[in-house]
């Protein structure tokens, strides 16, 4: 019986406490460094695509959301560094489970999972990301992401990293 009374008093105390909720669209909590979000395709420094259209990512994908159609590189149309390139490269974000297996499977580090997680659309078709969309730098949809959250160790991040004895290279500007 005393325990119930204790419970009631606990909830009653909370009534006068400031809520600890983080108001999401206004305040964005930085994600962890290895957070897996929206995919990104990469290019070599000379502008050629890293992807050679080998379809290993599609084979590794457990939810079968990647579609790759390769084509041969020709001397006058050289797209990638290898023999072939991905003529079509599509990821269906509605099916993707963000497991990161594609990233592991890729022999050329052509695909990585970024940190953007705000992917909602109002139609399902819009969730099929094409190659050109994946090659672009993801749009920074929110002002707080203008500063790359991984360069700026927030208090939260420091605390989490501290738990694993990792010291981050602190941002010289110390911006936040």
């Amino acid at each position: 019986m005393l325990n119930q009374v204790k419970g009631f008093s606990t909830t009653f105390r909370h009534l006068f406490q400031k809520p600890i909720t983080q108001q999401y669209p206004e305040y964005k909590r930085p994600v962890y460094p290895r957070f897996r979000g929206r995919h990104q395709l990469h290019r070599h420094e000379n502008g050629l695509e890293k992807c050679v259209g080998c379809s290993l990512c599609a084979a590794a994908c457990p939810s079968d959301c990647i579609r790759v159609v390769p084509a041969e590189n020709t001397p006058d149309n050289r797209v990638s560094a290898g023999e072939r390139y991905a003529r079509i490269y599509e990821i269906n974000m509605a099916r993707c489970i963000f497991c990161g297996y594609c990233e592991l499977a890729c022999p050329f580090d052509a695909i990585t999972l970024g940190n953007d997680f705000e992917l909602s659309e109002i139609s399902r078709d819009a969730l099929v990301y094409t190659k050109s969309m994946l090659l672009e730098k993801p749009a920074l949809r929110t002002p707080s992401q203008a500063v790359d959250p991984y360069d700026v160790p927030s208090q939260e991040m420091e605390r989490v990293l501290g738990m694993y004895d990792i010291t981050t290279a602190t941002n010289p500007e110390g911006a936040e």
């Binding site: 909830t11 909370h14 406490q17 400031k18 809520p19 600890i20 909720t21």
Partner: peptide
């Protein structure tokens, strides 16, 4: 609203 405040939410 009240349940939110009871649970330290808004």
């Amino acid at each position: 609203k009240l349940i939110g405040r009871f649970q330290a939410r808004y």
